[in-house]
Design a binder for these strands. Structure first.
Lengths: 174, 174
DNA sequence: CCATTCACATAACAAGCGTTACGGCAATGT
DNA sequence: ACATTGCCGTAACGCTTGTTATGTGAATGG
């Protein structure tokens, strides 16, 4: 799956992957678009329900949430690879596109809560928490992309360092 | 081109776009991969040679470079859309993938110069300029993605505000 | 215990893909 | 003016794609 990209995702390839035939797939999904939609929802749901870090409250909780996104493990790298690859398909399909927009908005909303909590604790300076959350999401998202294209330049340790740098400047500014 | 995504980029579609046939394309490009490679290089080169902002030195120059990346105009949005869509293809092809990694490394190198210059002027606190540049690139890259999926939530003005917020926290931290 | 339904494999289909072969027409050089 | 070269349109090829139709064996239910 992660090998040939989203463009190489064919019904027969999927069928072969789970030792079945196209008959099974067409039996459960009326069309390929439905299958893709389901697969993407599954990916989203699976990454949402996987074991999360939880090392503390406030700023530490925000850091946990952001670390959970980064490709720090091979599995997380694969997930991110599929995820980034799906952007091509998503941008081509208006419905999927708005769907993605909503998912990212949800992600920002969850981050916003943690930003606000960190502000309560005085770990982050005041300011619109939604805006700070959007900035943090941007930072992590871009770091994901760069790490995928140049893993050697962005090993896990470096990613964590960069995130911590970012959070440090965020909390130092006032 | 920007309409049907990178997956829908077919020889016949390209030929139709420039009122020609597949014969012309196969005459100039031995294979489709060569055509794609050329197109991506062209996109990279074109965005590199387009008119750039130049409002000042130091931190202002860094801000200019980052603003040049963001989808603040319809044309820049189209370019970014194609660019993001191409990531699927790029991640599937190891050669293209390392090529992209190199391009981003070059981008970071250019940003690094500006970061260093801003540090010289005392507009940015000391610290490894390469790391700061990588962070800035991450931030902008992620902002591009979010803006593409949710243009309503990230209008040009908001993008600029977010970038300025980021640069402000960067320069305020010490 | 038989009839019915369901799950799925098999196979075929048209459409679209990248690629190749070929032919004509215009430019070029002598 | 004629031969030659090369640009590029036309058309075909083989292959893969998503989708559909049909068959078959197992499960289900009365």
């Amino acid at each position: 799956m992660a090998a040939r990209g989203f463009a190489g995702l064919t019904l027969r390839a999927v069928a072969a992957e789970l030792d079945a035939t196209t008959g099974l797939l067409t039996h459960y999904f009326p069309t390929k678009q439905a299958l893709v939609r389901y697969a993407l929802d599954l990916l989203d749901q699976r990454t949402a329900s996987r074991p999360r870090r939880h090392t503390g409250a406030g700023l530490a909780a925000l850091r946990d949430a952001l670390l959970d996104i980064l490709p720090l493990t091979p599995e997380a790298t694969d997930s991110n690879r599929i995820w980034v690859s799906s952007w091509d398909t998503a941008l081509s399909d208006p419905d999927l596109s708005t769907d993605y927009g909503r998912k990212y908005a949800n992600g920002r909303a969850r981050l916003t809560e943690r930003v606000a909590a960190a502000q309560e604790l005085g770990e982050l300076p005041p300011g619109d928490p939604a805006r700070i959350a959007a900035g943090a999401q941007s930072f992590v998202l871009g770091l994901v992309v760069q790490a995928l294209f140049d893993p050697a330049a962005f090993p896990p340790q470096r990613q964590v360092e960069m995130l911590d740098d970012y959070l440090a400047t965020l909390s130092a500014a006032r």
